[in-house]
């Protein structure tokens, strides 16, 4: 396949914009959508696609997360304390990925990627179906020790919301798994992170989403160096992907109403499910 360089560049940027838009609307981050787009759509080898997506997820995390950090919706302490698990996990995940790539055993990567994509739909589906029915759990020992309390100003409700996190250890274990997946597949693992913060720690959805975004940059940066050294980051593709995903997530967060658009979100979730099935099929050698 030979393509005009400028066309190749534009296609990756457009792919990135689509991934960034879908990512910011569903709260999943763009990388998990970008990799299958690059692999299935443009026939890019999966290690280059994963490298580019890892770079793109750092760009979105830093770019999109900065506003939430400034507005104090992100809980910096909770994010930092759980990054202990994600960075440990990322190191292990990247080492496994390197071993699989070296053995040229790509089918496992495709299968795990397919499962991760299908799974990533779960938190969003649940949110659409159940509409935020979170039961409060009383503060536990970890709430006090790890200082898991906070508050933020809710623009919509026009009042300050106080909250506290619980079950830090369970949350940390899920974050460790999220880190492994992040390093293994070159994604941000936003879905698992949100699950850990929402379901385990019981943080308000807004705080979960912002804190997950905040954590993705450090998790992805941990894996990047090893991808870099092994030559899995192609500067031209990674640069184009970063530009695309960052623009897409910016457009998504600025111009689209996150609370509404139930139909659009449902449509995107179907796209993600379709991509997941395709990755699974590719892993099983069906196509």
């Amino acid at each position: 396949m030979s393509m005009l360089p400028i066309l190749f560049f534009i296609l990756i940027v457009i792919g990135g914009i689509i991934a960034g838009l879908i990512g910011s609307l569903t709260g999943l981050g763009g990388a998990v959508i970008l990799t299958p787009l690059l692999v299935l759509g443009f026939n890019i080898p999966i290690y280059y696609a994963a490298g580019a997506s890892l770079i793109a997820s750092i760009a979105t995390s830093s770019g999109a997360a900065s506003a939430y950090v400034k507005d104090k919706i992100t809980n910096i302490k909770i994010g930092m304390s759980l990054e202990v698990g994600t960075t440990f996990g990322a190191i292990i995940g990247v080492l496994v990925a390197a071993a699989l790539y070296k053995a040229n055993d790509l089918s496992i990567i495709f299968v795990i990627f397919g499962i991760a994509l299908l799974f990533s739909v779960y938190p969003s589906l649940k949110k659409i179906m159940l509409r935020n029915k979170i039961k409060n759990i009383k503060p536990d020992k970890t709430t006090k020790f790890f200082q898991l309390t906070g508050s933020y100003y809710d623009e919509k409700l026009k009042k300050r919301i106080r909250y506290h996190g619980v079950r830090w250890w369970y949350s940390e274990i899920i974050m460790f798994i999220a880190g492994i997946i992040s390093g293994l597949l070159g994604v941000g693992s936003g879905a698992l992170k949100v699950l850990s913060l929402d379901e385990m720690m019981r943080l308000p959805p807004k705080v979960s989403a912002a804190t997950s975004d905040f954590m993705i940059g450090v998790t992805a940066a941990t894996g990047t160096a090893i991808y870099w050294q092994l030559g899995y980051i192609q500067p031209f593709m990674a640069g184009a992907a970063a530009i695309g995903v960052l623009s897409g997530s910016f457009i998504g967060s600025k111009f689209l109403n996150k609370e509404g658009n139930g139909f659009v979100r449902m449509l995107f979730l179907i796209v993600i499910i379709a991509l997941g099935i395709q990755m699974l099929l590719r892993g099983f050698g069906v196509f």
């Binding site: 360089p5 190749f8 080898p45 050294q229 030559g231 899995y232 980051i233 500067p235 031209f236 593709m237």
Partner: peptide, 13 residues
Amino acid sequence: KQIASHDSEVSTN
């Protein structure tokens, strides 16, 4: 053309 192709050999390596 060598840089901007889907299986380019140019990488961070």
